[in-house]
């Protein structure tokens, strides 16, 4: 029998917030949410999309989501980029300055798992290597709608659409 564990299992102690904490978070941020964005080595594509969230086309204020300038008022850390060496320390300091409970969202292929850069001499290649990540938003860059879905999912206000799939083999039907 074949088992399907992840080869590169993320360190579960830092990447998986407990279900209880998750429920508490959903309760706390059910109504309004303040986001602090940190660019940790993006190409600016992700920022361009995030900025448009407050434009008339997307207007996330209607959903009770706001951007804040200081980490001290932030509930959620929205991180873009491949986590360059020079940004590790500023990123961790921003996280430390946020009050608990705090949420972390990895935005775009770069922050989720390195994108084209991966783990290299200059990039860590994934946010989960240094912070506990609540939600991953894939895409390069994720569209504003994908960002809204990711933020609402983090708050328990939207459904997750993708699930791990193990496909049947073409030759024989075993799964």
């Amino acid at each position: 029998m074949v088992t399907f564990e992840l080869l590169d299992e993320p360190d579960s102690s830092i990447t998986e917030p407990s279900t209880a904490l998750r429920r508490q978070i959903q309760h706390l941020f059910g109504r309004s949410l303040h986001i602090r964005h940190v660019d940790a080595g993006s190409c600016n594509g992700c920022e361009s999309e995030i900025k448009l969230l407050t434009s008339p086309y997307y207007d996330i204020h209607r959903l009770g989501i706001f951007f804040t300038t200081t980490p001290r008022h932030a509930d959620l850390l929205l991180v873009t980029g491949a986590i360059t060496r020079a940004m590790v320390d500023p990123l961790q300091r921003t996280y430390a300055a946020m009050p608990e409970p705090r949420l972390v969202v990895a935005t775009g292929a770069c922050a989720c798992d390195g994108g084209i850069f991966g783990r290299s001499c200059l990039t860590l290649g994934r946010l989960s290597a240094i912070l506990p990540v609540d939600t991953y938003i894939p895409g390069c860059p994720p569209t504003p709608l994908a960002l809204i879905h990711g933020l609402l999912l983090t708050l328990g206000r939207a459904e997750q659409r993708l699930h791990r799939q193990i496909l049947a083999h073409h030759a024989d039907g075993k799964a």
């Binding site: 660019d39 940790a40 080595g41 993006s42 980029g81 491949a82 360059t84 020079a86 940004m87 500023p90 084209i116 850069f117 290299s120 001499c121 200059l122 990039t123």
Partner: peptide, 11 residues
């Protein structure tokens, strides 16, 4: 600057 240096050229 250069906090965001990703080494594109090296990549």
């Amino acid at each position: 600057l250069f906090y965001k240096h990703r080494g594109i050229e090296k990549r």
